[in-house]
Design a protein around this nucleic acid. Structure first.
Lengths: 148, 148
DNA sequence: CCCGATTAAGTCGTGCACAACTTAATCGGA
DNA sequence: TCCGATTAAGTTGTGCACGACTTAATCGGG
C-alpha cells in the first residue's frame, strides 16, 4: 500500500467510497436481467425477500430491515401492490400501522426467484472465504457509518 | 459459515448483495453532512475528484472513470455549471465532444475538500489492512459483475 | 380524563441512475 | 468522394433515495 492510501489523498482510485459505490451499482446491474423476468426492480426484490421470510410485516419493520425511509417504501409498496404481488392493510389493533402481506402471486413468485442467488453468486465470482470476508467488512462499515 | 450461505438461500441476511447495498448507502450518508458544507452531492463530489486530478476532461472520460452514462452525467454537469464550479465547452477539434473544466471557484473548492477523506476514513473505522482488503474485494466484484 | 409528545405512514421536491431514443458530428471503406 | 456506420452528448420516462413536512392514531404523565 502506498502512502496515498493512508491520508488525505483526493485521488479517485484511492477511495474506498468509490469502490463501494461502483461495486454496488455493478452488482445491481447484474441482477437486472434476472429480475426483469420476474417483473421486479432490485429494491422490490429485497422487499420480497423479507416477505418470503416472514409474512404480515408492518411497513416500519420493512424499513428497519432494509434501512429505508417510509418516503422510499410507500411508493415502492404501492407499485408492488399495483403489480399484484402484495396487499397492504391497516392493522385493527393499531390504526397507524400498515401490514404488508403476500398475495398468491407474490407467494408463487418465490419459486421463480430460487435460482437467482446462485446465478448471482456465479457472476460475482468470489470464493466462499472472500464472500464471508466481504460481508464482514461491509457490515462493519455499515455499523460504523450509521453509528456515527 | 452455515450451509445457508453456500446455496440458494433467500434469507436477506445471507446476501452479499444486500450488505453491499446497505454499506454503500450508509457511507454516502456519512458524506452528506460534510458535502453539504461544500454545496455538493456525493456524485458531484466524485466528478470534482476527477477534475481536481486532471482538468479539461471530456464527458466521455468522466463517464468511463465513474462508470456513469451520459444520461446521468449531462444533468449533473448542468447543475455543477449552474453552481459555478465548472465550465462546459465544445471541443474545436471534435464538435461532438464536450470538455469539462474547473472555474476558479471549482479549483478553490479543492482546499475545502482536503479534510474530507480523513474525516470519512475516521467514521468508517477500518484498519489500513481491512481497508485494502475491502478495496481489493470490491474491485473484484465490480470487474466480475461488469465483465459478465 | 385530557392534552402535549411520540409514532406510523404518507406526500412533496430534488437529485441520481439507467434504458431507450434522438441529434449531430466524425469516420472509413467501396 | 460519398454515404452508411459509429461515436458523443443530450432528452425523456421510470423508479429509487432522502430530507422536510403533513396527517392521523396512540401513548402517558399530571
Amino acid at each position: 500500500m502506498d502512502q496515498a492510501t493512508t491520508r488525505g489523498s483526493l485521488l479517485l482510485e484511492d477511495q474506498l467510497c468509490f469502490a463501494l459505490y461502483a461495486a454496488s451499482r455493478s452488482v445491481t446491474a447484474g441482477y437486472r436481467p434476472l429480475l426483469d423476468e420476474l417483473g421486479l426492480t432490485y429494491p422490490q426484490y429485497l422487499v420480497m425477500l423479507v416477505l418470503w421470510e416472514r409474512d404480515q410485516v408492518p411497513v416500519r419493520d420493512l424499513g428497519a430491515a432494509l434501512h429505508l425511509e417510509s418516503s422510499t417504501l410507500s411508493p415502492l409498496l404501492k407499485r408492488l401492490e399495483a403489480s399484484g404481488l402484495i396487499r397492504r392493510e391497516r392493522r385493527a389493533d393499531d390504526e397507524r400501522s400498515v401490514a404488508v402481506s403476500l398475495t398468491q402471486a407474490g407467494t408463487d413468485l418465490r419459486e421463480k426467484a430460487r435460482a437467482i442467488p446462485s446465478a448471482i453468486g456465479e457472476t460475482m465470482g468470489l470464493t466462499p472465504e472472500q464472500r464471508a470476508t466481504a460481508i464482514h467488512l461491509l457490515r462493519l462499515l455499515t455499523a460504523n457509518a450509521a453509528g456515527n
